[in-house]
C-alpha cells in the first residue's frame, strides 16, 4: 500500500513519534502577577472583550475576536504601546480551519511587549491596522502574499515578495517546500508560453547531474569525440597520446635528477 500523506499539510513530519509522549508546555503565569500588564489588560477590557489573557516568557498574550482588532490596538496605543513591531499569521487550517493572526506590540516608554492573537476563517477578511501603525502597511501586504488573507481597507493590497502573477501562497501548509507545479513552470510559461513546456523540459535542480550522451557539455577520457556528435549508438575508442617528455620523474629521487643535470 502506498504511504498515506495528508493533503492539508505537506510540510515535513517527524519520522518517529511516540504516541504516549505528551509534549510539555511553556509555563504561563497569570496577568495579575505583573502590575503594568494588569493595568493594560484592564484598560483594554473596558473597550473589547478579551477572551483569554496570560503572561508567557515575560510577554502578555491577549486573545481577542478578529473583529475587535482595531479597537484593541487603539486601546493598547492609548496605553503606551506605540509600536507594532511585527504582524503576521499562522496557518491552522488543517487542524482548526482558521488562521491565527498575531500583532506584536512594543511600548517604548515601559519597555514591555504584548502579543495580540485573533483567529479568522479563510473566507473572512481582517481590517487593516494601517491607520494606527504605518508599519502594518508592508507587514499586511506580506501576510496577504504569504497566506492569501485579505485585508480590508489596506491602502495598497498587492503581493509584496512574490511576483504579482504568482499562483498560490507559499506559507500555507498545503504549499510544498519545493513549490507547486505552476511554480516550477513559472519562467517557461511567462517567457515562452505553456506550449513550450514539452520543448524545454522540466528544470534540472541537480547541479552535479552528468548526461552520459551529452557530448556538448561532457566528455569521457579515452572516448573523445567531436562536439555535439550523436553517441547514442556507441562510440569508438580514441587513442590518446600522452607527452613523452619527462619534466619531473617521481619514480626517481630528486637527488638522482640533480646528478643527471
Amino acid at each position: 500500500m502506498r504511504k498515506y500523506t495528508p493533503k492539508d499539510s505537506v510540510q515535513k513530519k517527524a519520522y518517529y513519534t511516540d504516541r504516549f509522549w505528551v509534549a510539555p508546555k511553556v509555563p504561563t503565569s497569570s496577568v495579575a502577577t505583573d502590575e503594568s500588564f494588569s493595568a493594560t489588560l484592564e484598560s483594554v477590557s473596558k473597550v473589547v472583550e478579551v477572551k483569554e489573557s496570560y503572561i508567557q516568557l515575560s510577554q502578555m498574550v491577549l486573545k481577542i475576536d478578529a473583529k475587535d482588532n482595531i479597537k484593541t490596538l487603539q486601546a493598547l496605543k492609548d496605553d503606551g504601546y506605540d509600536m507594532c513591531s511585527e504582524l503576521s499569521a499562522t496557518d491552522y487550517l488543517a487542524r482548526d480551519g482558521e488562521f491565527e493572526i498575531f500583532y506584536q506590540m512594543l511600548s517604548v516608554s515601559k519597555a514591555k511587549r504584548v502579543r495580540v492573537l485573533c483567529r479568522i476563517k479563510p473566507t473572512e477578511a481582517i481590517e487593516s491596522t494601517v491607520p494606527l501603525f504605518k508599519s502594518a502597511n508592508f507587514a499586511e501586504r506580506e501576510m496577504y502574499d504569504m497566506f492569501g488573507i485579505y485585508v480590508n481597507n489596506h491602502p495598497y493590497l498587492k503581493r509584496l515578495i512574490m511576483p504579482d502573477d504568482w499562483s498560490g501562497h507559499p506559507l500555507l501548509k498545503t504549499y510544498p517546500l519545493q513549490g507547486d507545479e505552476t511554480a516550477s513552470w513559472y519562467e517557461v510559461d511567462k517567457i515562452f508560453g505553456k506550449e513550450y513546456r514539452d520543448v524545454i523540459g522540466p528544470e534540472n535542480r541537480d547541479p552535479a547531474k552528468i548526461d552520459r550522451y551529452d557530448t556538448k557539455r561532457f566528455s569521457r577520457v579515452g572516448y573523445e569525440v567531436g562536439f555535439g556528435t550523436d553517441i547514442s549508438q556507441g562510440e569508438s575508442e580514441t587513442k590518446i597520446e600522452y607527452s613523452t617528455t619527462i619534466l619531473v620523474d617521481y619514480n626517481k629521487s630528486q637527488k638522482q635528477l640533480k646528478e643527471r643535470k
Binding site: 509534549a23 508546555k25 511553556v26 516568557l57 513591531s85 506584536q104 512594543l106 511587549r113
Partner: peptide, 8 residues
Amino acid sequence: PVGEVYAP
C-alpha cells in the same frame, strides 16, 4: 515544549 516565543 508547546508554546510561542518572541525574542527581540
